[in-house]
Design a protein around this nucleic acid. Structure first.
Length: 488
DNA sequence: TTTTGAGTTGTTCGA
DNA sequence: GTCGAACAACTCAAA
């Protein structure tokens, strides 16, 4: 590559899940190449296999693109939006502009890896310079191996290994002025992609989120300025603002993990217990991508083969009750309603609702993963897969299947004053603290006074806890016995 | 090479 | 009330 800015051809920068201008290796490399830079976004959900963006993620994507477009405008680089198929769109843009290069940042979902491999090879055969960089991770999955040269399957050794390796620092935008092509290719209007929902179920989203690049920076700063110090304890309390809430920004690449890692260190947050715990969570995100790359079947298949024929009992009514937040367990229903209303759920509650679906209700974990996929603004295939397989006990370093969360106990431990339940399950708001997590056990007079009519204003539990627990353990036993019979 | 011990997030039971 | 054990099976690194 030369830097003779007068002769270098145009370089297309293909934005995907790296919707930022800072710490963006593909953008930086394109600018440094010296020729005009043409940023493009190609909408091609049909190329994502079973994992096209869900409704909540599309809402976020719409706003992230608006924000990216503004940020690129400030660099003098108007964003071109087109629809897929991606390869066709890229070739058309090459033909229209005479571009000589296409740069992008890697994604790690199996369907996308396969597509990108083909695209890179084809573009090279077309005589173009095709290059991909790393915007999404601090450590590349294929560079992390255990002593036997195999991928890690247990987090703690993975984390220990990472701590001996230098993290890659953020990439910095060059001072060189970026140049746009003389003639801008036509672009679709963002609205033409139809990303925003037709029904206005997203009304609660803007109250919770500022899905822009400024919003990303502010969220990071606000977290490192306060909550991080007590993160180790308060991250478990869904009624408090103890978590970072950075996940949707990371999922869309409005923040890169390198930037977060570096900011945690430069502010000194990383030196404290809370900061250390937070960085470990970032490492879990790396671990999730590590697993997705090395075990690409896991979005749909259990990592642990012993669970391949687990005796789930699919039941649409049970699944629907869970999805709608009508299980009769207040902490679970609060979580599911928070998810529906805001596109996000507190991590502690994600574990509780997952446990109830997979264990008490014996629904396949894939159903839960699918619902989360459609409703989370932070939907990320690696994290979602790890989380659900962990909850179901069939994944890497998973909670053992016999570890069954008790939803009352979890509520009493982590939402002791019921603030979280009252916020999301308002029909229970007037119950006293000691009954907020167990309305079915409250005396009639207490229920009447709080205006709660069980089975009418609020459901009774879909399944009694002890019975659900026994049934789950029996299913585990049955699965174990099946394992012993060869061939099944 | 083989063995050993530890491993994100829990609950229940019996002493 | 608290406390330890039991509840699988397997990976990984250190001894």
């Amino acid at each position: 590559m030369t830097h003779s800015s007068t002769t270098e051809s145009t370089c297309i920068v293909w934005f995907r899940r790296d919707l930022r201008v800072n710490d963006n290796p593909a953008l930086v490399a394109a600018i440094e190449r010296g020729g005009p830079v043409l940023p493009v976004f190609l909408y091609a959900p049909e190329e994502e296999g079973d994992w096209a963006p869900g409704g909540a993620a599309r809402w976020w994507l719409h706003h992230a693109l608006t924000s990216l477009s503004r940020a690129l405008d400030e660099l003098g680089l108007p964003l071109v939006i087109r629809r897929g198929p991606s390869l066709d769109a890229l070739r058309e843009l090459v033909a229209e502009t005479g571009a000589g290069a296409v740069f992008w940042n890697r994604r790690y979902e199996p369907a996308i890896v396969a597509r990108d491999t083909t695209i890179k090879q084809t573009l090279k055969e077309d005589g173009l310079d095709a290059w991909s960089g790393n915007a999404a991770l601090i450590w590349e999955p294929h560079q992390v191996r255990n002593q036997q040269g195999r991928p890690f399957r247990v987090f703690t050794p993975f984390w220990k290994h990472l701590r001996t390796q230098a993290p890659s620092p953020p990439v910095v935008l060059p001072e060189l002025a970026a140049k746009a092509p003389d003639e801008a290719p036509r672009s679709l209007a963002l609205d033409a992609l139809g990303l925003l929902p037709e029904r206005d179920w997203d009304a609660g989203f803007p109250q919770r989120w500022t899905p822009t690049l400024d919003g990303a920076g502010e969220a990071l700063e606000a977290f490192l300025d306060g909550p991080v110090a007590r993160y180790a304890e308060r991250r478990d309390c869904p009624g408090a603002s103890g978590t970072s809430r950075l996940s949707p920004f990371l999922a869309h690449g409005q923040l890169g993990p390198r930037q977060v890692w570096a900011a945690a260190h430069s502010t000194g947050a990383a030196d404290g217990k809370g900061g250390y715990t937070f960085l470990k969570e970032l490492a879990w995100r790396e671990f999730a991508h590590h697993l997705l790359v090395h075990f690409p079947q896991t979005p749909t298949e259990p990592l642990n083969d012993a669970y391949r024929h687990f005796p789930w009992e699919p039941d649409e009514a049970a699944l629907a009750a869970w999805q709608r937040g009508r299980t009769g367990y207040p902490i679970v229903d609060a979580g599911m309603r928070e998810l529906w209303r805001t596109g996000w759920m507190h991590n502690r509650v994600r574990m509780v609702v997952a446990s109830l679906l997979v264990k008490h209700l014996l629904q396949p974990w894939q159903e839960g993963a699918r619902w989360f996929w459609d409703t989370l603004v932070d939907a990320d295939l690696a994290n979602n897969t790890l989380g659900w397989q962990w909850s179901a006990g069939c994944g890497a370093d998973a909670a053992p299947y016999f570890r069954i969360f008790n939803p009352m106990l979890q509520g009493e431990k982590f939402d002791p004053d019921g603030a979280y339940v009252r916020r999301w399950v308002p029909e229970l708001a007037d119950l006293p603290d000691r009954h907020i997590h167990t309305p079915w056990a409250a005396p009639d007079a207490v229920l009447r006074k709080a205006g709660v009519r069980l089975g009418e204003t609020y459901p009774r539990p879909v399944i009694e806890h002890a019975a659900g627990r026994r049934r789950a353990l029996a299913a585990l036993q049955e699965n174990k016995e099946r394992q012993r019979q060869p061939g099944d």
